[in-house]
Structures are given as structure tokens and as C-alpha cells.
Amino acid sequence: MVRSCRSPAPRTGCQNPGRRHRQPGPQCQPTVAVGRHLAATAPVGNRLRLNRPQRQRQGLPRPRKRFGQHFLVDGGVLQDIAERVAPTPEDLVLEIGPGRGALTAPLRQRLERFVAIEIDRDLCAHLRERFPEPEVRVIEGDVLHLDLRQLLEEEQRSTLHVVANLPYNITAPVLFRLRDHADVVRRAVLTLQKEVAERLVAQPGCRAYSQLTVFLGQCARISIARLIPSTAFKPRPKVDSAVIDVEFQPGRVPVDDLRLFETVVKAAFSQRRKMLRNALKSLPAPDGTGTVTTVDLERLADEADIDLTQRAEDLSIGQFARFAAVVGAAGSSA
């Protein structure tokens, strides 16, 4: 066999062997898609530029997942929340988790001075540059470790008015911390998960009625001010949110022994689908030895006018307080 010495014709475009030569058409040109779906042929530099968020080009710190950050960006909602903050001359306004300062800006227009606490170091630097003192004092730290009474002394105020867009992962700890300081926290305007807001305002007999409802309701009057769709946040969360108005009233439901009250409530809700006859068996005996007997439990329930065939979600806050008082009195006389 004799091989040809002629050079092969140059191949262009999308020519396939054995077919007539065609000029490369638009369909044969490599394309670069926009957004997240980039063609594999796009240079790495192009991919990075196309995927780079606008916030980075503007020098804004991006949300951090470990802090549960979802920034509220709806201007109308932000203005509405700011207008709900109405401090007295004795109040110090404390903004928890200001983020990039979306709510801080309208608050600054309404208040002479307030304090903002932010755990994210990069956001703190951004906030201090955008909102210099004396109008806004930015504290870098965790609100769960902030000494609220010392802060009041430093700012020469007697009570706190809290405003916050709470990350979902620290909502309950923050609520309990505010409850523990109900004597110095006068009011709070909080943005939190809609489901949590519904639990906080639930009534006895409702499935949403919970341990959190009882603990916060014992010392505060809570109402839902408005709902916020998930589209009002960046990045968008999977659930909707709500703004609640919390007016703290220490002793709203009088409790003789707060620790014992908490013990009773926790025991009742630890097995919330069971009757109180079974759920409350873990309570300590009146004489302090072991757990309460069935006979003692029925006697205490009769004295407190509590039906042990009910479940935890059926008792009002006042009934929990009354039963705890009876348990405490029995222990004192034992």
C-alpha cells in the first residue's frame, strides 16, 4: 500500500471526518453562561468575576453561616421596625446584631444615642466606620455574655429598650437572657422566626403552647406586631419571620419560688403528650427523698385544683404557678 504524500487539508470549525467542510457557525463557538451555570470552557478568572457578589465589589462583609446571618433588606419593613422603638428618657436602646447597619441607619435618625452589639469582627469594623460615636456605640461581642447592668451604669440609664433581628439559632437563648433581666429590660422589639412568635403568643390548649410560652408569659406581655416574608431577607431564609412587641412586667404572674416553678414546668413539658399524672412523676418528693409518689402527687394536685388527666399544654401559666406554690409549701412543712 502506498501512502499519499499530500498534506491533509486543514480542519476547521466543527468538521467531522468524511463530511463536507463547513465554516464554523455560531453554534460551534464556545459560550460562557452567566450566573451560577458557567460553561466548563470559561476561563477561571471569568468564572470568579461572574460569580462575585455585588456586595464584595462594594466592600461589604458577606453573611456568615456560622452566625446564622440573614440580613433584613426591605426598606419599608426596616422603617416600620424603627418607628416601633419608642424609648423613655430613662431607657438605653440596645440593638442586638446590627449586621451591616440596615436598621441602625433609621434608628440613628430617630435617636440621639444608642448602643449596638455585634459578634462579627468584620461587621463591627464596617459599623464603626459608617456610624461613628457619639451617636452610636458599637460593641464587639456576644450579647449572651454582655453584662447588661454594667452597660446601663456606663451609659447612665436605668432600663433597656432592646431591638433586634435575631438569628434563628440564638433566639431562645436571647429570650431567656432577657427574661433573666426582666427587672432592667423594659421593652423589646424583636424580629424572629414566625413559628417561634406563634409559640410565644399561644394560648393553653393549642399545640403551639410550650415551655417557652409559659416562661416568657410569666414575666412579659407579648404580641405579634407584623409578619415579614422570607423575601425581605438576604440571603433568603427558608421560613417567614415576625416582629413581636415584648413588654416586660416582672411578677406579671406571681411566683413564690422561680426555680421550683421552672422545675415543675420543665417536668410537665418533658413528656408533653402524656398526662400530667405520668409527666410529673419526676418531681422531687415533698420530704426531699427521691421522687414524688402517686399518692402525694394526687394530694398536691387536689390542693392546687389541677386535673392530672390533662396535659402540660392544657394548663395556664397561673395554674402552673399555683401548683408550684403548693409543691413548695408541702416541701417546707415536710
Results as ranks from 00 to 15, higher is better:
P30V: 15
V201I: 15
R108Q: 13
Q211S: 10
V214N: 07
S223Q: 15
A40N: 04
S7N: 11
A329G: 05
G141A: 05
Q79W: 07
Q310H: 14
L190E: 00
R186F: 08
G331A: 06
E262A: 15
H70Y: 04
P8E: 04
S4V: 05
L103I: 04
D147G: 07
G251H: 08
H37E: 08
E140S: 05
R62D: 06
D122M: 01
A164I: 04
H21V: 11
P235H: 03
P30T: 13
Q310S: 14
E262I: 13
V264E: 01
H161S: 11
P204D: 03
R186M: 07
C28N: 05
A82L: 01
L146P: 06
V136H: 09
D302N: 11
Q271A: 13
R157D: 01
R22K: 07
A220V: 11
E313Q: 14
G205C: 06
D91L: 06
L144N: 08
R6V: 15
R311N: 03
G18I: 02
G318E: 14
P8M: 05
A39T: 00
K234P: 00
T263C: 09
L92G: 03
L260M: 12
L111T: 12
A42D: 00
K234Y: 13
E129C: 02
D314A: 14
T159S: 10
R187N: 10
R259H: 12
G97S: 01
V138R: 11
V295E: 11
F71H: 09
A329D: 13
T31H: 14
H181Q: 07
D302M: 10
L178V: 02
D302T: 12
Q54M: 12
N46V: 14
E198I: 04
A225H: 09
P98N: 00
G318L: 08
A232P: 00
T309V: 09
C206W: 14
P250E: 10
V77Q: 06
Q69W: 05
Q15I: 10
L258K: 12
E153F: 01
V2F: 04
P17Q: 09
Q27S: 13
L123R: 13
H161K: 08
L72K: 07
S282K: 10
E303I: 06
R177S: 12
Q109E: 15
L151Q: 05
D183F: 07
G35T: 08
T12V: 10
S270L: 06
Q79V: 06
H126G: 00
Q109V: 02
E112C: 03
R186N: 09
S4T: 13
G318A: 13
T291Y: 06
Y168M: 03
R6D: 13
V77N: 07
P250N: 09
A188Q: 04
Q218W: 10
A232R: 02
R186V: 06
G97A: 01
S223V: 14
D240E: 05
Q15G: 09
S316C: 04
G45P: 00
A82N: 01
S282Y: 04
S4N: 09
K238Y: 00
T41Q: 09
L60W: 03
A116D: 00
R110T: 07
R52F: 00
C124A: 03
D74E: 11
D305W: 08
S316P: 02
A125H: 14
